[in-house]
Amino acid sequence: MAKKTSRKSVSFQPNESEVNSDADAPEYKTKVPTLAYPIIPVQNLFLVWDLFRRGLTEHIAETLLNSLPTVAVLSAAQGYLITLASANSGKKSKKQTNVPLLIVGSVFMSFVLSVPLFGAILLFGAPLASHLTETFLLAVHLSFLIFNPLLVLFKFDLDAFVSVFKAERIYRLIFGNYILASSLVAVAGVWIGVIPIPLDWDRPWQQWPITLLVGGYVGSVVGGALSVLF
């Protein structure tokens, strides 16, 4: 059950489009869960520091792989914080939620979702003939970064997620929500992360896909901070 709905929850993917258009009640805004207190993913800055400390620029694939347990644990912790924060704000949802299952499920799903994300990154122009390992590991990292908080926040509820896009003032809604803002800016960060690659500075950190990863991680923190300011 959980798996079935969760696969649908990635609306960034083309094949997940089967949303029921008959539900067009006006009060979607209420469906988007809000948090009682801000959660800014500052741990991502630590992660970036840790990656470079482990020697990201020398052994990219190895370092990315080795840091995955840390990423998973941190994601789970963040997920727990999100459930706490949302449990405080919403009253009725508390009793339905199986918190451990939700957290473990979302960590697992984040891993699964990295496969379509991998495809999307390739579609955006990642090298096809080489660096496939690095690209896949990038996809896993980004999947944890972007999807995991969303999965926990929406509790695998696709309709609630879709309702974000039906809102009148979508950017106001997104930037009013800590998790949505940090995910969106993280995606933008990855997009902007390609910019330094072509420069002929010959720096080790210009290697694929370090800039994208750093862009994503930094973007998530910036997004969270922006939503607090908003």
Binding site: P14, D24, A120
Partner: peptide
């Protein structure tokens, strides 16, 4: 490609 993916996304979330 960014535009293409934006199109996919836009149509996917278009409910009308």
């Amino acid at each position: 490609m960014t535009f293409g993916v934006a199109c996919i996304f836009n149509i996917a979330i278009n409910f009308e």
